[in-house]
Structure formats: structure tokens, C-alpha cells
Simulated assay, not measured.
Amino acid sequence: MGAVTSIEELDAAISSCRACRRLVRWREKVAAEKRPSSRDETYWGRAVPGFGPPDASMLIVGLAPAAHGANRTGRMFTGDRSGDVLYAALHAVGLASQPTATHIDDGLTLRGVRITAPVHCAPPDNKPTVTERDRCRKWLDTELRLLKPTLRSIVVLGSFGWQSLLPVLGSNGWEIPRPRPKFGHGVELQLGTVRLFGSFHVSQRNTFTGLLTPSMVEDVLRAAGSHAGLL
């Protein structure tokens, strides 16, 4: 296909991507076998595009779709417990229209915020390979290029997203300090017109153990939203 010139074209292109054989096999296997509680549902079972307005001033970067979350519903962080935490926090600070995300037609909208990931297919054990991440990089690169005119803040959920994002930011004209900044919860980094915010990922492992609390997520989102002029 030719050069992608809009977020709508990007989302459509991502949805039809079959570049990584292992991930395609896995996402389709999960979609066919399903989990018992979702056996009557039709799974998305494809690569999951980003979610949010095409002129977002704030971007949230995660890891990859969950097998029975976004791989089932077709929307980032929708239908799983990680999404429960993230969308509740976005709603609490005034950036989401409702605190829950259950399915793609549930009426949820985001205000000035877009959500994406370095890997757009659900990986086995939630662990994409470096090769898969690098093969998927073109989508994140294109998304940043399209969002650059309006983008003012980025929240990165977890070290995988941080490590994946920095070189893509660099290739799109943002100067990355050397040595490369390390990830950490609460880390902030100004890169020209964009401010980067680090947060632990909203995974069950982090939220169930108390490593990440709802108030911690809200604090990061509030800071990023304020910097982006949304709050």
C-alpha cells in the first residue's frame, strides 16, 4: 500500500496486518478457542489499532493487546482488568466519558487522548519478541508522525513501551538525550514540544500487588493531561 496519510487509514492498515506469523497464529487460535465465559462472543482476532481522536494532544503507550481483552473486543485496553484500571483513572481525572470499557460499541470516548501500543497483536504470555516489536515499529512510527502537529504529552506504561518508544521518537525528530533516559514510575522528560511521563503498567501483577495504585495512575494522567492543555 502507499503512504498512510491519516489516522483512519492507519487504523485500517493495522487491522489487516499479518506480518508476524507467530502472533497471527496465536491471536487466531485464541479467537477460535475462546475462554469459557466468552464462548458466545465473536472475537476480533486481528491486529488492534489505536483508540482515540486523530488530533490527540496526549498519547498513552502500552505494551500489546491482551488475548481475551483487546484481542476479543477489538479496542485497546477494553474488556480486561488492566483496562478497568486505566479507564477508571482516565474518567476520574476528566479524560474519558465513562469509567468502564467493555466492548467496542459501549459509548466510551476519550477527550484529547489516544491510546496505542508498540505491538498490535496479542502475544503468547504477554511477551512479544524483539523481532516482533521491531517489525511492528512502522505503525508506531506512522502514528507519531501523524500526531506530531498536536501532540504535547506521552504517558508510557511500563519499561517495554519506554524502550520501544524512545528510538521511534528519535526517528521522528525529537532529540533523545544520551545516555538514553531510564524508565521509572514518575519519571518525566521534556523532549522539545513533547513531555514524556513514565508509569508502571496497569497490569494485574502490578495492581494486585499494590505496586501501582489507582491514585498513582491518576497522578500521572493528571500531570500529562495538564501539560497537554486538557485539564
Rank of each mutant, 00 (worst) to 15 (best):
M1D: 08
A3G: 03
E8K: 04
E8D: 08
E9P: 02
E9Y: 00
E9V: 01
I14S: 02
I14V: 14
S15M: 02
S15T: 03
C17P: 02
C17H: 03
A19K: 05
C20P: 02
C20A: 08
V24I: 12
K29Q: 14
V30C: 15
A32T: 10
A32P: 00
R35I: 11
P36R: 09
R39K: 14
G45V: 05
G50S: 15
F51P: 09
G52W: 08
G52M: 12
G52Q: 07
P53I: 03
D55I: 01
A56M: 05
A56K: 05
A56W: 02
S57N: 01
I60G: 11
I60L: 15
G62D: 06
G62F: 04
A64Y: 01
A64W: 02
A66I: 00
A67F: 09
A67K: 07
A67S: 15
G69E: 03
N71R: 00
N71F: 00
R72P: 04
R72I: 01
T73L: 00
G74S: 01
F77E: 08
T78F: 06
D80P: 07
D80N: 13
S82N: 13
D84C: 12
L86C: 09
Y87P: 04
Y87F: 15
A88W: 04
A88V: 00
L90Q: 08
H91S: 11
A92K: 15
V93H: 11
V93C: 10
G94V: 07
G94C: 06
A96Y: 10
Q98M: 13
P99R: 05
T102W: 04
I104M: 10
I104K: 13
D105L: 06
L110S: 04
L110K: 06
G112L: 03
G112W: 04
R114N: 08
R114I: 07
A117D: 14
P118M: 14
P118R: 12
H120S: 02
C121V: 10
A122C: 06
A122P: 12
P124R: 09
N126E: 14
K127I: 14
V130T: 12
V130P: 03
D134K: 15
R137S: 15
R137G: 13
K138L: 10
W139P: 00
L140W: 03
T142H: 02
K148T: 12
K148S: 13
P149T: 06
V155L: 04
L157K: 03
L157W: 00
G158Q: 01
G158W: 09
S159V: 06
F160H: 13
Q163F: 05
L166S: 01
P167E: 01
S171V: 06
E175K: 14
I176T: 08
I176K: 08
R178F: 09
R180M: 02
F183K: 03
G184I: 05
H185M: 07
H185R: 10
G186D: 09
G186N: 10
G186P: 13
V187C: 07
V187G: 07
V187E: 12
G192K: 11
T193Q: 14
G198S: 09
F200D: 15
F200E: 15
V202G: 13
V202P: 14
S203G: 09
Q204A: 12
Q204P: 09
R205C: 01
N206G: 00
N206L: 07
T207H: 11
T209K: 11
L212A: 05
T213E: 12
P214E: 04
S215Y: 05
M216Q: 14
D219R: 15
V220C: 08
V220N: 07
R222P: 03
R222F: 05
L230S: 09
